[in-house]
């Protein structure tokens, strides 16, 4: 395995920076989305969307710790969020284009039903996070620790998961095309009901995964 062993201080991060975003739901009728940045509405139903988006972009650019934040249905482009710590945040239904997350630590974050286009997740440490239902295009997750994550129902095209530890990560009901899983730990990984085209499992323990 070529996965880099992470330093001990990361253990501190994962055990001490897990809270949870606000569970208050949007005031708009028939909307069950969680409210965004201490507002009474979700981002989609907020009146000051531009203001909120600028605030969130600044947070992503400048803050090292992104914690307990809900920001769904937004679009982010051309950002460098390297070496950041994302914890207990909800970015469901967001679009991320040309975002560099490399070297970041992501714990208990919800990126479900997102679009990731040309994003870099290499050398990241992602745990207990949800990418379910997302479309992931031309993205690189290589050399990462991706343990206990939920990738069920994703559409992944031209992605690189090489040299990743995917322990207990699920890909059920996913559509995987031109995805590289070379030299990965697939112990307890789950590939049931996946549509697979041109995948590479060279040097990986695919026999240890559910399929």
């Amino acid at each position: 395995m070529l996965v880099k062993r992470k330093k001990l201080d990361k253990l501190y991060f994962f055990d001490n920076h897990k809270n949870m975003f606000n569970f208050k739901t949007c005031k708009k009728d028939n909307c069950n989305a969680f409210v965004t940045l201490d507002s009474d509405y979700c981002y989609r139903h907020s009146e000051n969307k531009n203001e909120l988006l600028i605030k969130m972009n600044n947070l992503l650019r400048n803050e090292e710790l992104i914690r307990d934040i809900t920001f769904s249905h937004a679009e982010f482009e051309n950002l460098s969020t390297e070496q950041r710590n994302f914890s207990s945040s909800n970015f469901s239904f967001c679009t991320f284009r040309n975002i560099n997350f490399s070297g970041s630590r992501i714990a208990t974050c919800f990126f479900d039903f997102c679009l990731f286009d040309n994003c870099i997740f290499s050398d990241t440490d992602i745990r207990y996070s949800v990418f379910s239902g997302s479309k992931i295009l031309n993205s690189n997750f290589s050399n990462s620790l991706l343990i206990h994550n939920n990738f069920s129902g994703i559409d992944a095209w031209f992605c690189d998961f090489s040299c990743c530890d995917l322990y207990f990560t699920t890909f059920c009901n996913s559509c995987l095309r031109d995805v590289n899983f070379e030299d990965c730990n697939l112990k307890k990984a789950d590939f049931r009901e996946t549509e697979q085209r041109r995948l590479n499992f060279k040097y990986s323990n695919y026999e240890d995964a559910s399929k």
């Binding site: 069950n32 919800f110 239902g133 939920n150 129902g153 207990f168 009901n173």
Partner: peptide, 25 residues
């Protein structure tokens, strides 16, 4: 239940009710 509920299981990754309805084989 509300499909936006977060599910924290005894083993493995978290999920949401909506995700399980759609993708749990």
């Amino acid at each position: 239940l509300d499909d936006n509920l977060l599910v924290f299981p005894g083993h493995g990754a978290p999920t949401k009710i909506k995700n399980e309805i759609l993708f749990n084989p």
